[in-house]
């Protein structure tokens, strides 16, 4: 499928230099000299790298049809994350590299969306937030009232994030898996 670059929208998948990229941002821009442009930020689905690229707005861009399918996360090894499509029991492996830091926040047995193109799993669609239990954290000293102060906490998936001092072991917190930021408690 082809489209004019001027129609590109966030979330779409395109072929650029023979690789598949997801549009992270697409902003119209007219320099007033020559044709209008589409300034885009695109993410390579294989390497996970982001680049800025300026398309001419009337340039043909090949779009890639990518399905996002909800699957159960099974486990990971050194190279891949493994998922199962519960409708078909087919298993898919997603390479760790493009997933990046978000992989550390996935919980075995939970469901996540996986991007599939021609039956090949390219990446996961990182959830907006994940809910994870704290397994290790220091007790805050009484009288420590510095506002905004943080301490490290180990979560059930093994990853460590910074949390406010009032958070305790056993509590479930909400984290943005792309930035590792604490956003609240359950």
């Amino acid at each position: 499928m082809k489209t004019r670059a001027g129609n590109l929208k966030k979330g779409e998948f395109v072929k650029y230099q023979n690789e598949t990229w997801q549009v992270q941002k697409a902003d119209f821009y007219s320099p007033g000299k020559g044709s209008a442009m589409m300034k885009a930020k695109i993410k390579n689905l294989i390497t996970g790298k982001n680049i800025d690229y300026t398309f001419k707005s009337n340039e043909d861009v090949e779009t890639v049809s990518v399905e996002s399918v909800e699957m159960q996360y099974l486990y990971k090894d050194m190279e891949n994350l493994y998922f199962m499509d519960e409708r078909t029991y087919n298993q898919y492996s997603v390479p760790l590299e493009p997933v990046g830091e978000a992989a550390k926040f996935l919980k075995e047995g939970e469901k996540y969306f996986v991007y599939l193109s021609n039956e090949k799993a390219l990446n996961i669609r990182p959830p907006m937030s994940v809910r994870l239990k704290i397994v290790e954290v220091e007790e805050a000293d009484k009288g420590d009232t510095v506002s905004g102060a943080k301490k490290p906490a180990k979560l059930e998936t093994g990853v460590t994030v910074m949390v406010p001092l009032f958070v305790k072991v056993g509590e479930t917190i909400i984290v943005n898996p792309e930035t590792g930021e604490y956003t609240g408690r359950e």
């Binding site: 230099q17 320099p31 000299k33 020559g34 044709s35 442009m37 800025d52 300026t54 001419k56």
Partner: peptide, 24 residues
């Protein structure tokens, strides 16, 4: 430089390279 040149003029490509490589 691997820009798409099919059906594009000097003016189009000048603007594209200008926006992509010069302006920032």
């Amino acid at each position: 430089k691997r820009y798409n040149i099919k059906n594009f003029t000097y003016e189009d490509l000048f603007s594209q390279i200008y926006v992509q490589e010069i302006e920032p």
